[in-house]
Amino acid sequence: MSFTISSEISNKVAILTLGGSLDSSSASDFQSEIQKVAGESPSEMVLQVSELTFMASAGLRMIVFAKQKLGPSVQIYLVKPQDQIIDTLQMTGFIHSVHIVDKYPV
């Protein structure tokens, strides 16, 4: 399933909606979107990922990239990730970079 992404900024909160499969070929799209919203200096970043079915290594790294790009004070929320993505985040330690939530605002 191909990767889809859209973004908006609302009240200084960057909301990115991701769908499909995030792998090395689509990671650059994700990166571009992160860079775009980072330019607006958001106070929080929200990733709507309930429709995201797979996240490969390169995709996971984009979360760390976002963390570094936005700075340590900007919290990143992952809304409703699928179980397999949570497992992968846990086992590879990337989970420490994000908050897993069922809805946003929390």
Partner: peptide, 18 residues
């Protein structure tokens, strides 16, 4: 690695060590 099938064994091992 449980994530070996995704090619993420390196991250999983490093997370364990950390």
């Amino acid at each position: 690695a449980a994530t070996g099938k995704f090619g993420m064994q390196v991250d999983e091992l490093k997370t364990l060590i950390k």
